[in-house]
Simulated assay, not measured.
Amino acid sequence: MISPALARIPTPPAPARLPEHAPLAVQTRDGLVESVHYGSAIATAADGRTLLSAGDPLAAFYPRSALKPLQAVAMVRAGLDLPGELLALAAASHSGAAAHRDGALRILDLHGLTPEDLQNSTDLPYGTAEREQWLGGGGTATQLTQNCSGKHAAMAATCVINGWPVRGYLDPAHPLQQLVARTVVDLTGEEPRGATTDGCGTPLFALTLPGMARAFGRLAASDGGPEAAVANAMRRHPVMVAGEDRDVTALMRLVPGLLAKDGFEGVQLVGLPDGRALAVKISDGGDRARMPVTVRLLEALDVDTSALPGLATSAVLGGGRPVGLLQATDFLAAPKTAHAPEDL
């Protein structure tokens, strides 16, 4: 007999259709496949055509922090005017180094704001070395050290510039977030499939890999306006976008003109100066698989990746010596064309 207490528990909704992801990366140990990372990926031309794809690229997903450059474009469209390194920080998932913390403070101070005006969640610095240094000095989790503090400082600043209320700037009905929503539609060329709240508290939209790729291609190829301002700031100040020893910073340093931004749960976006772009989603959220898959796509697009061996693979150690490898699969050996939306 079912307990009366259990009987009152509502039946959970049926799960959404599972995306048809493909194996994109594998880790081997002494010749045996130890782990497999499934996911979806796409590369698009400047006009939005699909050049390469794998898995289920039209399955809706949350871009997480890869949405930040689009949010930054919205703020520049609304009048935000920052030095390049601070605009890059507005689009950053930073490691929490002193330069990042000081940069967020500068954005606030330039607009008569203080850290008390930030509405993001609290956290320790994201970077391992930065976190250890912060904790060693007696630091605790704060809004300023949280990896999105640059974006939130810029959002509060944009409110000041436009005479919008700073309090409540994360509300989806707030003028700032309404502008961000319209900008996302404009840059991706698609209506969101859903909406939620990101880890830092910002409204977040469910989109597709082709839509996000189109947006990054547009930013990377732009030669003027807010899109170019954001893209150029990120490319010129890659350490502000992430930090030392971060793969996104290394990728932008090593490939001239490339625009890159990662997101939690295995998301990677890249835009190229000619308007081509690529988008990757690792289905299990595994961060380690994101960059090998990205480098494989860049190779397939004939981008010079000779400077990227350290990002394309990583050694698997046993007793301190290499015994295996994490690397991308040959997921483009049998290319799969993205389904039309009406086929989903």
Rank of each mutant, 00 (worst) to 15 (best):
E20H: 10
A22R: 13
A22T: 13
P23T: 05
P23L: 06
P23V: 04
L24C: 15
L24T: 14
L24Q: 14
A25C: 15
V26A: 02
V26R: 01
T28R: 02
T28N: 01
R29K: 14
D30R: 15
D30W: 11
G31M: 12
G31R: 02
L32S: 11
L32K: 15
L32W: 12
L32A: 14
V33Y: 08
V33L: 12
S35R: 11
S35T: 09
S35P: 02
S35Q: 12
V36A: 08
Y38K: 14
Y38A: 15
G39I: 11
G39W: 09
S40R: 04
A41R: 12
A41E: 12
T44H: 07
A45M: 02
A45I: 02
D47W: 02
G48V: 09
T50R: 03
L51A: 03
L52A: 04
L52Y: 11
S53K: 10
A54M: 15
A54F: 14
D56M: 05
D56P: 04
P57Q: 06
P57M: 02
L58Y: 03
A59G: 12
A59R: 11
A60I: 09
F61K: 03
Y62P: 09
P63L: 01
P63D: 11
P63T: 13
R64F: 03
R64K: 08
S65K: 10
A66S: 13
A66T: 09
L67T: 12
L67H: 13
L67A: 13
K68L: 05
K68A: 11
P69K: 12
L70Y: 04
L70K: 11
Q71A: 00
Q71R: 03
A72V: 10
A72R: 10
A72K: 11
V73P: 09
V73F: 06
A74Y: 10
M75D: 09
M75E: 09
M75S: 03
R77K: 15
R77W: 11
R77N: 13
R77C: 13
G79T: 10
G79N: 08
D81F: 05
L82V: 01
L82P: 06
P83A: 00
P83W: 04
G84T: 00
G84R: 00
L86V: 04
L86Y: 00
L86R: 02
L86C: 01
A88I: 13
A88L: 10
L89A: 08
A90L: 06
A90C: 07
A90K: 11
A91F: 03
A91R: 06
A91G: 04
A92K: 05
A92N: 02
A92L: 12
S93R: 10
S93H: 06
S93N: 07
H94T: 02
H94L: 05
S95V: 05
S95W: 03
G96R: 10
A97W: 05
A98Y: 13
A98D: 15
A98F: 08
H100C: 11
H100P: 10
R101S: 03
G103H: 00
G103I: 09
G103M: 06
A104L: 06
L105G: 04
R106F: 00
I107C: 05
L108T: 00
L108A: 00
D109F: 01
L110I: 03
L110N: 00
G112Q: 06
G112A: 01
G112K: 07
L113P: 07
L113R: 00
L113D: 04
T114L: 07
P115Q: 12
P115K: 13
P115Y: 13
P115S: 14
